[in-house]
Design a binder for these strands. Structure first.
Lengths: 219, 219
DNA sequence: ACCTGAACACCGTTCAAGT
DNA sequence: ACCTGAACACCGTTCAAGT
């Protein structure tokens, strides 16, 4: 017990966010959780913003960015993307905090470093490698926000609310697609876009000679 | 003057967000802006959450989702994506509010309706059309959040702060790419990923017989 | 029907006082 | 060096009182 420190404060914050949501978090709640006065926190963390940076770093550090340098670049890209998606699974209510903090720390920049290395080894150079990196990040961030419910799926958020009443005259396509819109398997959705991007990148490299497996196609 | 109503309250909220940022917004500030008591707002808006929905709807309604049904589907997809990106340009500080609200109103669902119609006309059916829609939304949302500074670019956020000091031993790739990472032309970045996606979609349709222009390639 | 002030239960953070 | 209570300037929202 006792001996407050930054790590313990951050851990309590992550815990509280996952238990009650990012909106419920406050310096006062975290202090209460730890059984200390609010102002004690300020001995270890300069302010709330820095604490949220700590939350983002802690979550990112918990992800295993393993890398197999012997694997084909397409597979390495997939593995890294899936590792990042793991955040949405392990820390759904902290995900928005993680993606919305501009981290300049080691934990925050390691994923980009790894991704850029892979893209360069695949054969992308200079500006194009950076563009591919940014495009990939955009897709992954957008996918994660959909998965954690920040962004719309057009599927019922909860299975109980039957679906907002859509006027078939105004929204014929959404109505016609209702059966397909009603389900949103986040893993399948993520993999779908991931394959599309990996294939598009391979095409851009001119690697049309790859096997169907390597190009991510079903045989 | 006077006669408070929902539209005026929402307009004041959008204005305040664009002027001082989404964090600065509060019922009390908006009321002060309009020269009324805080509680007067509650005659026209049930609570702050509903007001933010109003903000998202107002911004979305301000975007021109023109559509030229005679154009090739690839071009229609580009036009719709660019129309959505316009939000980040016209209402940068409201963009996070727009993408993070689950709207079930007409204004909120029109873009998805249009996009799904275009994808169906392009030849995507059922589940695949929905997957393409969700993938596109993910990419666009991720791109917008980068553009408005929510998500990292790995470029200096402001031109004045010279760049976080990166250890070349820890981040060799980021250091090697520093010249390319230092710039982030948001339009060019967006167009790059957009073309990649449109091309990938065309490939998925088996439209390899398209002209270079229609496939989005430089001739 | 619309407006409003007082009140309640919250915030983040400063500051001065303790050990 | 670390902890802390009081205080300040804020929040969103309820409620009862006004017109």
């Amino acid at each position: 017990m006792s001996t407050l420190n930054r790590a313990k404060i951050v851990a309590a914050a992550v815990d509280l966010i996952e238990r009650e949501g990012a909106d419920a978090i406050s310096m006062r709640r975290i202090a209460a959780e730890l059984g200390v006065g609010v102002m004690s926190l300020y001995n270890h963390v300069p302010n709330k913003s820095a604490l949220l940076d700590g939350v983002a770093e802690a979550v990112l550090s918990g992800i295993e960015f393993t890398d197999d340098p012997s694997a084909h670049w397409t597979e390495r890209v997939r593995i890294q993307a899936r590792a990042f998606r793991q955040i949405a699974h392990d820390y759904p209510r902290s995900t928005m905090v993680v993606v919305s903090r501009q981290l300049h720390s080691t934990a925050g920049m390691i994923p980009a470093e790894r991704a850029l290395a892979t893209l360069r080894e695949a054969g992308f150079k200079g500006e194009e490698a950076v563009r591919m990196l940014r495009m990939f990040i955009a897709y992954i961030v957008g996918s994660l926000l959909r998965e954690v419910g920040v962004t719309p799926t057009f599927a019922p958020v909860r299975p109980d609310v039957p679906m907002p009443d859509v006027d078939p005259a105004l929204f014929p396509e959404l109505c016609a697609g209702a059966p397909d819109l009603a389900v949103c398997d986040h893993e399948a959705e993520f993999e779908f876009g991931l394959e599309l991007l990996v294939q598009a990148m391979a095409v851009r490299l001119g690697e049309r000679g790859l096997t169907g497996h390597e190009r991510g196609l079903e045989t």
